[in-house]
Design a protein around this nucleic acid. Structure first.
Lengths: 224, 224
DNA sequence: GAGGCCGTGACACAACCATGACATGGCGAA
DNA sequence: TTCGCCATGTCATGGTTGTGTCACGGCCTC
């Protein structure tokens, strides 16, 4: 089931499209401004963004550029009939496709389907946590777009922690889930691995942002 | 330099677009009927087809379907303003994109650019991955135009890996998908096959570009 | 201020992978 | 049919990289 982020200020259009898309099996998140859309982007990780060009506040082109900067989520623009120059500008701002208003739900569905087919199984599954991007399928972690070179155990540890952000994992739990085979040794092993991981993903490993220590309990990924 | 096959019966539009596209660095072949277009398709191997829907003789939808049947060359439709149902039908017939008449050359160029950019990282009939071209239908792999002689298992391995570029395949997964029959033996078998494959497709098998090792996890085709 | 908890760096060995050699078996050519 | 080639699986070797352990020292908490 694919997730669609719909950014459209006109309530009638928004609700109509939301209904139509939901009815066709998409999970839709509909918001009414670019700012809200960019907020949602970080938490919802949609597979495709449908973006109205004419928005109050931040305009569609700016939103488009910012979404592009954040990753490779495909963008379908909604544009007023006849504004060919808008189309050109939108495509140059990084949009993948456009649909001319008034929008026929069937047309939009066809376009979304086409975009998803193209993107396919490739990059549908990127997790973003602040500056960090985690691609579990590709086993790639990037920070601000730069790949980070992590060892296997460090990767498994990061995957485990980032799988449930905000939750504290005890050393014992981590030994069982990351190291798998019943482990007898010192639980300080986890500390060592955390340290190596921090050295690679944190800006300042003395003040970690991603992997935080919860004194007396274990480690937590992400926000406080 | 990309090749465009333009199928358009109106001489004024045809010549105007031909001129504009040529001026922007495309090699354009312009014909005036679907039949001529299909003929040209075989000899010219264009990177993209621009197809008018309203054609004398064989109509655009039929041409579209036949181009699709012949391969995965992307198709951009030219459609009359306001015919949303034509758009849907065109997309269902296999078109990748559409532009509404009257056509602004800049719009068409942007659409062609967008389509070609997508192909770049996606797949046409021939998948291109850097210097490597994979023709799954013809079971042919060429490198810089030179056919590479691969053994059956090496081919299956390459197909499996390149089918999901960027995704890491574990040795176990590969044993199941490439070797099929429930396999007990050493998973180092995969290593051996990878090594043989590399010897044939990599420039420097010590610094592989196509099939990369992901230590502790498996192998990945393509980009980092 | 004391005790416990954690971060840090060093180091040895263990795991992992590339490589080449070799045995086997299937298939086609003569 | 027989021979020979080629594809494939197995194994041993060696180099590289990752990992577990330890000891020390700092910091937080009580």
């Amino acid at each position: 089931m694919s997730r669609v982020l719909l950014i459209e200020d006109d309530p009638a259009v928004r609700e109509g499209l939301e209904l139509a898309l939901t009815g066709h099996g998409y999970r839709v998140r509909a918001v009414e401004s670019g700012e809200q859309g960019l907020d949602r982007l970080r938490t919802d990780l949609p597979d495709v963004v449908v973006l109205d060009l004419m928005l109050p506040g931040m305009d569609g082109f700016e939103v488009c550029r910012r979404i592009r900067a954040a990753g490779q989520i495909p963008i379908i623009m909604l544009t007023a009939r006849g504004d060919d120059m808008d189309v050109v500008a939108g495509l140059e701002a990084g949009a993948d496709d456009y649909v001319i208003k008034p929008v026929q739900p069937r047309v939009l569905e066809a376009r979304i389907g086409a975009v998803l087919r193209r993107i396919g199984r490739d990059q549908a599954e990127l997790e973003r946590h602040g500056d960090l991007t985690i691609d579990r399928a590709g086993i790639v972690v990037t920070k601000r777009g730069v790949p980070v070179d992590l060892a296997p155990t460090e990767l498994r540890l990061l995957f485990e922690l980032s799988g449930t952000p905000g939750r504290v994992h005890s050393r014992q739990q981590l030994l069982e889930s990351v190291w798998e085979h019943g482990y007898f040794g010192d639980s300080r092993l986890v500390d060592a691995c955390v340290q190596r991981l921090r050295a690679k993903i944190e800006d300042d490993s003395a003040a970690p942002v991603y992997v935080r220590t919860v004194r007396g309990f274990g480690y937590r990924f992400g926000p406080v």
